[in-house]
């Protein structure tokens, strides 16, 4: 009889741990997902700026027509939805690179550089880039917490049982480590 009680208590404790462990994993995963959603939100904010940017610069930029069209197409694809997370990240990186290219090319157009509209747009763009970088860092922090829980004992046991998989971190580029300053691209070129 006494052995039975002991077993019951042990089982109760195990179930309790399992519930707590499971809930913790769920909470951490939700936090990571929420952080990913905010990256998405920031990326959308950036997409919203693209038509504006294209409209402002295309009157000045004669030689970058192709790049501008490409950006517009990429943006259309990005906002159309039905992309997997990995595709989204890839597309995002491509857009970042193309926009960086345009900002460097602006150097050749002094009139554009002095355009009040463009200067304002540049500020907004810097802001969104910095917010995007903050969202990525927040995501990485959330994912690190989640991954730690998935891999560290004892929560890794429940992670294995309930099939929680670790998530991939964003790679923060060296450029992002600094203040994202579009203007600084000009100085170095």
């Amino acid at each position: 009889m006494e052995g039975g009680t002991g077993l019951l208590i042990a089982l109760g404790v195990f179930v309790l741990f399992a519930i707590l462990g499971y809930n913790r994993l769920i909470r951490l995963r939700n936090m990571a997902d929420k952080a990913f959603a905010s990256i998405d939100a920031m990326a959308k904010k950036r997409y919203d700026l693209i038509p504006n940017l294209v409209a402002t610069v295309q009157q000045y930029m004669q030689h970058e027509r192709a790049t501008l069209t490409e950006i517009t197409e990429m943006r259309a694809k990005a906002v159309s939805g039905n992309l997997s997370d990995n595709e989204k990240v890839d597309l995002d990186n491509k857009i970042s690179r193309a926009m960086g290219g345009i900002m460097v090319a602006v150097e050749n157009y002094p009139d554009l550089k002095a355009n009040q509209n463009f200067i304002q747009l540049q500020g907004s763009l810097n802001e969104v880039e910095e917010q995007l970088s903050a969202a990525r860092r927040a995501y990485n922090a959330a994912v690190t917490d989640y991954n730690n829980a998935c891999q560290m004992f004892p929560s890794n046991v429940f992670a294995m049982v309930f099939n929680f998989r670790t998530k991939r971190l964003f790679e923060i580029s060296e450029q992002e480590r600094q203040n994202v300053d579009v203007k600084s691209l000009f100085r170095s070129s």
Binding site: E130, A135, R137, E176, N179
Partner: peptide, 12 residues
């Protein structure tokens, strides 16, 4: 969490 990181950039 995000705004804290927006304010506290890696440079800051």
């Amino acid at each position: 969490q995000i705004e804290a990181r927006y304010v506290l950039s890696t440079a800051l």
